[in-house]
């Protein structure tokens, strides 16, 4: 079983990623360190990809059937999306954030080898599972960060002088997060069609995910057309995140959610 080499691959991936991120943070403009940093990040992604490919070949099936296997994909795709976002937008902190999230999944796999074998329930054994979850994690991470910016912005607004740049960065994070939120919602719909016969059944989680999508939609539109109303938008951005959190964690406690397929199991 190929999993015996997993700690090694995970370690090499982490080392590459730490080196790459450090180089990028340390590099000044036009410094040779920057391309080296990129190479290290790509080698990190390459290492974990190699492990997935070898595992796939040895198993003779896509490694997507057990809990441990799905975590592997989470880590891989998070690093990939984080890297692409960094390349496109130049936010260095995305690298740290994403590495942190990816590490959670890799470390969980290291600590719980028994989950390599634990089969998922039938409906979850789908090629849609991983993309659906991964784009949501990334969307939530981006929108979570936009929330942090909104709180920072509120502080600056009331106690210091407010630089518009704060809200502009937050906006961009909202755009990126919203794009992934849209994908997550739609991947979920396409998966639902395969697994449950219809793409939309107003399951409580779907309803709340749609609601989250709508409130960010309102934010994007008011922000776009009333660019100068800073205070309104800072407050709005800090409040709509609550809807997202309710959707993520609150569903289990709602009367409407007794039969939801999305209520997370305690095991």
């Amino acid at each position: 079983m190929n999993w015996i080499y997993f700690p090694l691959y995970a370690l090499i991936t982490a080392i590459f990623w730490v080196i790459g991120t450090s180089l990028i943070f340390a590099s000044k403009r036009k410094s040779i360190l920057k391309p080296l940093g990129h190479i290290a990040l790509l080698l990190g992604i390459g290492t974990i990809t190699t492990f997935v490919v070898i595992l796939w070949l040895q198993l003779g099936r896509p490694p997507m059937r057990t809990l441990g296997e799905t975590r592997l994909w989470y880590a891989l795709f998070l690093l990939l999306i984080g890297y692409v976002t960094f390349v496109r937008w130049g936010y260095q902190w995305v690298l740290i954030l994403i590495f942190f999230f990816a590490s959670i999944f890799l470390v969980t796999d290291l600590l719980h080898p028994e989950t390599y074998e634990k089969t998922l329930m039938p409906a979850l054994q789908s090629p849609w599972f991983v993309p659906h979850v991964i784009v949501y994690i990334f969307a939530y991470a981006m929108l979570g960060f936009s929330w942090v910016f909104s709180i920072y912005g509120l502080y600056m607004f009331y106690f210091k002088s407010f630089p518009m740049k704060v809200l502009n960065v937050a906006d961009n994070l909202v755009y990126i997060g919203f794009a992934f939120l849209t994908m997550g919602l739609l991947f979920g719909a396409l998966w639902a069609k395969e697994a449950w016969g219809h793409y939309w059944t107003w399951d409580p989680k779907e309803t709340w995910a749609f609601l989250t999508w709508l409130v960010y939609l309102v934010y994007i539109h008011t922000r776009y057309f009333h660019y100068t109303k800073v205070r309104l938008h800072l407050w709005m951005l800090s409040f709509i995140f609550i809807v997202l959190l309710l959707c993520w964690f609150g569903i289990s406690y709602m009367p409407s959610a007794k039969n939801s397929v999305h209520v997370y199991s305690n095991e």
Partner: peptide, 12 residues
């Protein structure tokens, strides 16, 4: 979905 990719790439 294409629109979402566009949104990600073009951003704000």
């Amino acid at each position: 979905l294409c629109g979402a990719l566009y949104l990600f790439w073009i951003g704000k």
